[in-house]
Design a protein around this nucleic acid. Structure first.
Lengths: 230, 230
DNA sequence: CTTGCGGCGAGACGGTGTATCGCAACAGTA
DNA sequence: TACTGTTGCGATACACCGTCTCGCCGCAAG
């Protein structure tokens, strides 16, 4: 049997890599949500046995940590730093955009401390943009407060988005119709104020709501940065 | 065989109840975290087969929804309403306290829309405290902004608390020592600002951090409530 | 007493994360 | 070159999960 008759050996899959593992996991999560990520499926996508992964991660939670840090690369500011407000605003907006691209991020955000290189780099850039404008404590509080708002607002937005998708209602109808359950609850008369707000309230897009709250929080930060600490 | 020889029939466990199911699930979660809650274990605690639960809930997620609403009973304001700031502040603080009592709440907060009777009642009371102080949109933004901050801050606090517990470090050492990993990362010199903040920053308790950020956000709300909408 | 029905729960199913361990392939040595 | 020691891979196993199916048992009606 000549060389020509023998098929080429199957191209060995590139040797494993944390990078490749995380990329596969992110792809899986983007397609089917966090619950679609199982070590077996990640391994299958890399043509590898599940146990192979344990050389690179020692637990599924670690894989999630790596995924979160991977996405933080998308959150790093693009250009050179502007003023503090632009930095905080940009960080919040880019985090939200990343969560809209990778909805599973909302499930993980704030769930564990993010100490990966990309997350630290994001923090570094943000802190640097505020450095010197006030004492360390004030700056720390500013970053943490905006971060907390961002995390919470993103979670709510994604949660609502999923609920809308599940019921098939359009986003703008949602707050008024919200399915039979809420209608019935409001009709009991036990939540008169809430009922009035739902009935009379203007429809507000999630993006507008996020932006408005963010401006408020940034204003609060501005008030503390401008004047020396109490 | 006389009556006296025959044992009394075993006291039948009280017929099932959503209340009892949720109470068992909450107890399990309080003891071992959310991951310790399985339908099988909840059922076992009620001396019942797992399938029995499906008459009362149709999915595990629904059980989680019920648990969240159960805890919202602890978040309802105790007395009669005070002013708007007290209402928002109290809501945030009570939510945090509930999360410290039931750490698993941090995993669920903001994860799905909360539409249970207790959650709606909490919202009703909060909205009522702000009603009339500004147009509906402004009031809605106020409640949502404070809510988003609260969710995010609680998640971060619980996440940090768990990480501390896992490493055995004391809370105050944490920010400086944070385990070998962060020390090494900071030593690389790639995060100079962050390193300086970690090194020079005053230790701040989680409670103080939460309270400070909350005051900032409430100040921002005050600024919008006091003057008519733009 | 018989019959029909309805609901309960045992068992099954397909999946999960992870521990174990036999084997095969390789490195080093005689 | 032949042998041996070691290492690391991955098949197999295990305990557990959420949920579906369906046979059986107890009760109501005739």
């Amino acid at each position: 049997m000549t060389v020509w008759d023998r098929p080429e050996p199957p191209t060995r899959p590139a040797p494993l890599d944390r990078q490749r593992i995380v990329a596969a996991a992110v792809a899986l999560a983007d397609e089917g949500g966090l619950e679609a990520v199982s070590l077996r499926k990640v391994a299958a996508r890399l043509d590898v046995g599940p146990m192979r992964l344990y050389g690179y991660i020692s637990t599924k939670e670690e894989l999630f940590d790596l995924m979160v840090d991977e996405v933080h690369a998308e959150i790093l500011p693009d250009g050179r730093p502007g003023d503090w407000r632009e930095a905080l605003h940009g960080h919040a907006v880019r985090t939200r955009q990343a969560a809209l691209r990778h909805e599973w991020l909302a499930d993980l955000l704030g769930g564990r401390p993010s100490l990966g290189p990309n997350a630290l780099a994001v923090t570094e850039r943000t802190l640097a943009a505020l450095d010197g404008l006030a004492d360390l404590d004030t700056v720390t509080h500013a970053v943490q407060t905006v971060g907390a708002y961002t995390t919470g607002a993103i979670r709510r937005e994604i949660a609502q988005l999923r609920a809308e998708r599940a019921t098939g209602l359009s986003e703008l109808d949602w707050q008024r119709a919200y399915g039979p359950h809420v209608s019935r609850m409001l009709a009991t008369g036990r939540y008169p104020t809430l009922a009035r707000f739902v009935h009379d309230g203007r429809e507000v897009t999630a993006e507008e709501s996020f932006a408005t709250g963010l401006e408020w929080v940034l204003d609060a930060v501005a008030a503390r940065l401008d004047r020396p600490p109490a």
